[in-house]
Structure formats: structure tokens, C-alpha cells
Design a protein around this nucleic acid. Structure first.
Length: 420
RNA sequence: GUGAGCGUAGCUCAGUUGGUGGUAGCACCGGGUUGUGGCCUCGGAGGUCGUGGGUUCAAGUCCCAUCGUUCACCCCA
């Protein structure tokens, strides 16, 4: 019986690796410009880290984590918590009051896979810790926008504010009583949510709930003055930076730790999965994880699989980037020729060329075919005759011109011939 | 966890109301060219028709179960 990959994970084959490298290279380039430094983190963490940060009652913690129960260890379902753990553990705030960090890697959630959703997927995660100014919020979103548009991804930005411990409780009460008044028009889930997680009813997709919620009190009308001021500046800064956005007072985040600014970069091209990147502010989280008091923070995560899907899809007619081919292929005919070619290919590689050969002593036709398949620039044909005469046939695969090449001249001479 | 669709070669897929030997294209290998790739041409290899049971004289085709997978719900990157 063949062993296959488990449900919800995917192999990334060489043919599509170009997309991943493109994302990573572009991200690193842009993060560099914004002074955001890389941090590498473990995939395994104590289960407690996530139950404490993401929230006991969230779906992620309740039913989606891969946990080794006996060891109380969990495969991370997101990166933010790990990154903040490292920030606190190493006292990074002492070195630099505002830390700008990013990390790229896999995360794990036990959900049913579907388009744009896997059980192991990959995130580009960015966090700015230690700054509470609204300019930071806008800068981060502007950077996200820059990165996504550099990758030619067509997305829209939606923003909202979730208030803070000052103002959210009051809003929550208002919302609960509104939902209770409209109890009959809500779906079963939202009836249940009314008490437990009323905010979640705001982004319910059921038509009935959408209508019911339309006239619900708006969080944006119920912010305390500090939050209102903060959010106003965020918007003003986005305008200054030329970042287009729309307000979405129904946007709610699935993780408990968010407060104030939240945002999502959305697409309509990924089936049911709209969010390509999402994040927000989490001003109480660092302290909650045992870090210094009153340490604000904000960050976002981008879903790499979703970006790749979009790139492949939106690429459309554009021609595929040709994988760089080999510089040269040595077609060796006969045992002696192979003995000559083996060290010769090795020397070419030492000199920096991508050189290839075939050890199986196949027909010249087969080897030429192989050379063509490798998209080689040149093929050096070495058979018995050539060995005797000390002159190989060097074929330019692009224009089909053939010249003689003295085998005694050595690898460096060949390099200079084919690179000239 | 729930629902629907789909499982025929490495990939994309034909396969008619169940009725003789399992299609084709791409890719792979070889010949046509004593030693020259892409195009053409001829040939070759490659399959437990996901698996197990059932109905039938006869099942890739119908039924059931099971596994896998896709999409959607829930929720999320």
C-alpha cells in the first residue's frame, strides 16, 4: 500500500517553488526597508501559551490545536504568541524599547481542509511591540499593502476598531440587549452567541442575521474618547500614506487578544476564503504573557498558501518564468568518455557553472534529448573519436552552431568560451 | 463536527440503456537519423478501473459499506 501525505498537508513541488521564493524574497526586502528583523521560533510550545493568549473559548483552542496531551505541548496554531513569548523570555524590550520583528513558517490547525485552507499552512508574521501610537498602526498596514501590491495581488483593506477594556464592556451590553430584542430573527448559532460572544454575531453570514445586525449599535459609535482619537488618527495617517481602505464595523477577530485597530486584506478570488492577511492591535497581551506592564503591540499574519493561489490565479495569461536551465551538458559516449567527463563536470561545477551529464552511456540522441530537457545552453559531445583527437564538439543549443573544443584546454577555458 | 460532489496510467480525461479483448492526449523509453535535442513519424512500457461486499448469465458502469479527495458550512491566514 502506497503511503500518502496525510489529509490537509501539501507538498510544494519544484515547479511552484518559484512563487514561494518570490514571496519570501519580496517580504524580506520590504521588511528590511521598514527596519523589521527576522526571528526564528520553535514550532512546538507549551499548550498553556496558546490557551492563555488566544483564549480558552475560541475555536482554535477548543477544537483545532494539535496537542500532545501527555506532554502538554502544542504545535503552534499561529505565530504571534510564540513571538511574544520569545520577546518576553529574552527581555528584548531592554535592548530596544520598540521591537520590530517578523517570522516565516508553518502553523497547524485541525480544520477540515478546503480551498485556501490546510491543516499545515504557512504564515508571514509581523509584529511591532512596544509602541502604541496610531501612526504605527497605519505604517504597518501601509507596509502590508506595499508587500501585497509588489506581489501583484489584488486585495482590498478593511479596518475596524474593537475598542478597549474601557469601552468595550459597555458596547457589549448594548449589543446583547439589541440581540435579545431581535432574538427571533437570529440563527441558532447567534442565539447561542448572544450571551457568550455577542460580537461574533456581527459577522455572521446567515442572511437573517445580516439583516438583524444591520441596525445593531455600532462599536464605532461607542468608543471611549481615547479609542476614538486613536482610530481617527489611524484613518488620517492611512489617508496621508495614500492607503485605500474601507470601514467595516462588522469585522470581528477570532482571537481574544485583539483590541482597538483590527484589519484584514481581502480578496474575492479564493472561494470562501476572503482573508489573505489579517491582524490588529493587542495592547494587553504582552503583560498577560508575563512581560512588562503596559506593553502595547500590533501585528498581522499573511497566509502564504492563499497568496500563492492568488498569484497563480491572477497571473492568468502571463508567461511562466522559465526555470533557469543548465549552463552545459556533457554528452559522454562510451566508458572512456564517461571517465573523462566525470571529473570535468566536477571542475565546471567548482568554477560555478551548472553542469550536468548522464552516467548511463545512452545513445547520443537520448543524451541530446536530456540536454534539451535540462534547457542547457550548450552541450559538449565527447565520444571515442573526440577523445582520440582531443577535440570535443561544442554545440550551442540555442542557435545550433557547433564548434570544436580542445579537451586539453581544461574547464576554465570552456567556462570562458561559453560565458563570452 | 456537519453536508454535497468526485475516485479509470505519473498528469488531464473517454468509456454510450450493465454486454467480446479496459480509451486518448501529455509525459517517459526506443526506432526512423553507424553519433546530434525541440517538429514529424512508427513502436514500446506503464492500470489491483480507490477498497470490500452485494445484485446479475454478465459490473469501470447499478446498490451498500469503507477509505481517500474536493468544495461548502462552522471558523479562520
Amino acid at each position: 500500500m502506497k503511503i500518502k501525505a496525510i489529509n490537509g498537508v501539501k507538498d510544494t513541488l519544484p515547479a511552484e517553488i518559484i512563487y514561494w521564493q518570490n514571496i519570501e524574497n519580496t517580504a524580506r526586502d520590504i521588511f528590511h526597508r521598514f527596519g523589521i528583523h527576522e526571528i526564528r521560533l520553535p514550532i512546538l510550545e507549551k499548550t498553556q501559551l496558546f490557551t492563555r493568549s488566544i483564549g480558552e473559548a475560541t475555536d482554535i483552542v477548543e477544537k483545532e490545536m494539535y496537542t500532545f496531551v501527555d506532554k502538554k505541548i502544542t504545535m503552534r496554531p499561529e505565530i504571534t504568541a510564540s513571538l511574544l513569548r520569545a520577546y518576553v523570555e529574552h527581555g528584548l524590550h531592554v535592548q530596544q524599547p520598540v521591537q520590530r520583528l517578523f517570522s516565516i513558517g508553518p502553523v497547524f490547525r485541525h480544520e477540515r481542509p478546503q480551498k485556501g485552507r490546510q491543516r499545515q499552512f504557512h504564515q508571514v508574521d509581523v509584529e511591532i511591540i512596544g509602541a502604541q501610537e496610531p501612526e504605527i498602526d497605519a505604517e504597518l498596514m501601509a507596509m502590508g499593502q506595499m508587500l501585497l501590491s509588489q506581489l501583484n495581488l489584488d486585495v482590498s483593506l478593511e479596518i475596524n476598531s474593537l475598542g478597549c477594556p474601557e469601552c468595550r464592556p459597555d458596547f457589549r451590553k448594548k449589543l446583547i440587549s439589541y440581540l435579545q430584542e431581535n432574538h427571533d430573527t437570529l440563527c441558532e448559532d447567534c442565539k447561542r452567541r448572544t450571551e457568550q460572544n455577542p460580537l461574533r454575531a456581527l459577522d455572521c453570514k446567515q442572511p437573517g442575521c445580516k439583516v438583524a445586525v444591520k441596525n445593531a449599535p455600532s462599536i464605532l459609535d461607542n468608543l471611549c474618547s481615547a479609542c476614538e482619537e486613536h482610530f481617527a488618527v489611524v484613518q488620517k495617517q492611512l489617508d496621508l500614506l495614500g492607503v485605500a481602505y474601507t470601514l467595516n464595523r462588522f469585522m470581528v477577530r477570532g482571537l481574544d487578544y485583539y483590541n482597538r485597530t483590527t484589519f484584514e486584506f481581502l480578496t474575492t478570488d479564493l472561494g470562501a476564503q476572503a482573508a489573505v492577511a489579517a491582524g490588529g492591535r493587542y495592547d494587553g497581551l504582552v503583560e498577560q504573557l508575563g512581560g512588562p506592564k503596559n506593553t502595547p503591540g500590533i501585528g498581522f499574519a499573511m497566509g502564504m498558501e492563499r497568496m500563492v493561489l492568488l498569484m497563480q490565479q491572477q497571473e492568468g495569461q502571463q508567461e511562466k518564468q522559465g526555470q533557469g536551465g543548465a549552463d552545459i551538458f556533457i554528452a559522454a559516449l562510451g566508458k572512456q568518455a564517461i571517465e573523462f567527463a566525470v571529473p570535468f563536470v566536477h571542475q565546471l561545477r567548482q568554477l560555478g557553472l551548472q553542469a550536468a551529464m548522464d552516467y548511463s552511456n545512452r545513445s547520443l540522441k537520448a543524451q541530446m534529448k536530456q540536454s534539451g530537457r535540462l534547457n542547457a545552453g550548450f552541450t559538449l559531445i565527447v565520444g571515442e573519436q573526440e577523445l582520440e583527437q582531443g577535440r570535443g564538439v561544442l554545440r550551442n543549443m540555442k542557435n545550433q552552431e557547433q564548434t570544436e573544443f580542445s579537451l586539453q584546454a581544461g574547464a576554465d577555458e570552456l567556462v570562458s568560451v561559453i560565458t563570452s
